[in-house]
Amino acid sequence: MDVFMKGLSKAKEGVVAAAEKTKQGVAEAAGKTKEGVLYVGSKTKEGVVHGVATVAEKTKEQVTNVGGAVVTGVTAVAQKTVEGAGSIAAATGFVKKDQLGKNEEGAPQEGILEDMPVDPDNEAYEMPSEEGYQDYEPEA
């Protein structure tokens, strides 16, 4: 019985440690998101679009440190934060509304985080759909 109880105690310690790591990862992701939003706020009209992409990228980098179902929630929060940063930029006159959601080359930025393969159960990952990809044929 002692062996059984000791095993359960060790398992509990492992769960607590994993929860603490997840909590730490979420806190880091939130900190990076805040950094990115402050970065966007300090940019001029020309830099705002690039700044919004930076927020998304920093958040995406930190999301990889967070495991399990938390990833889905962090990704949703990050996307809403990026959308909010863009709205703030438009409201303050840093950028025109028609410039939001495009990178410096004018290509749409939507789907940055949505296409990231995420499995809350950590069982399997699927690649994003290939609808947006084109076949590449090298020139002879």
Rank of each mutant, 00 (worst) to 15 (best):
V70A: 05
V48R: 01
V118E: 11
G86C: 14
L100R: 10
A85D: 06
E130K: 14
K32E: 00
P128T: 08
V63Y: 08
P138L: 03
V26D: 00
G101A: 05
V66D: 02
A89E: 08
A27M: 03
E20T: 13
E126V: 06
K43G: 01
G41I: 04
K58A: 03
K34Q: 01
S87F: 03
I112H: 04
T75Q: 06
T59L: 06
E46V: 13
V40R: 02
V16A: 10
G14P: 00
E35R: 08
G132P: 02
N103M: 13
M116F: 01
G41A: 12
T59R: 02
S87L: 02
T75R: 05
I112G: 12
V66W: 14
S9H: 05
L38E: 05
K58T: 10
I88T: 04
T64F: 09
V82P: 03
Q109E: 14
Q134F: 11
Y133H: 07
T59H: 02
Q62M: 04
K10H: 04
V71R: 13
A107C: 05
Y133V: 14
E110D: 03
E137H: 11
A11R: 00
E28H: 08
M127E: 12
P117G: 07
Q109F: 09
K34M: 09
K80Q: 04
D135G: 05
G36T: 14
T64P: 03
P120K: 04
L8M: 14
S129E: 13
E57M: 13
G7E: 06
L38T: 14
D98G: 12
G51T: 05
G132H: 12
V118M: 03
A69P: 05
V55K: 01
V15A: 07
T92L: 04
K97C: 11
E104D: 13
Y39L: 06
T81S: 07
E123F: 15
P120S: 08
E46G: 04
T33W: 13
E130Q: 09
V71F: 12
V77N: 03
G73C: 13
A124D: 08
E123L: 15
D121F: 05
A56M: 05
T81P: 05
D135N: 10
P128R: 11
V3F: 06
T54G: 05
E57H: 04
D115A: 15
K97V: 15
V37H: 00
E35M: 09
F94I: 08
G14V: 12
L100V: 08
E83I: 02
G84Y: 08
V82R: 02
I112Y: 04
V82Q: 12
A124T: 02
T22W: 11
F94Y: 11
A11C: 06
K21N: 05
T92Q: 04
N65K: 05
F94T: 07
L8V: 09
F4K: 00
K80L: 13
E104V: 00
E57R: 05
V16N: 12
E104R: 15
V63A: 09
V71S: 05
L100H: 02
P138I: 09
Y133P: 14
L8E: 00
G25R: 08
K96A: 10
T22K: 00
T81Q: 07
A30E: 00
V52K: 02
M116Y: 13
V40D: 00
F4M: 02
P117N: 06
V74A: 08
K43W: 08
V70I: 15
A17W: 11
H50N: 06
M5E: 01
M1A: 00
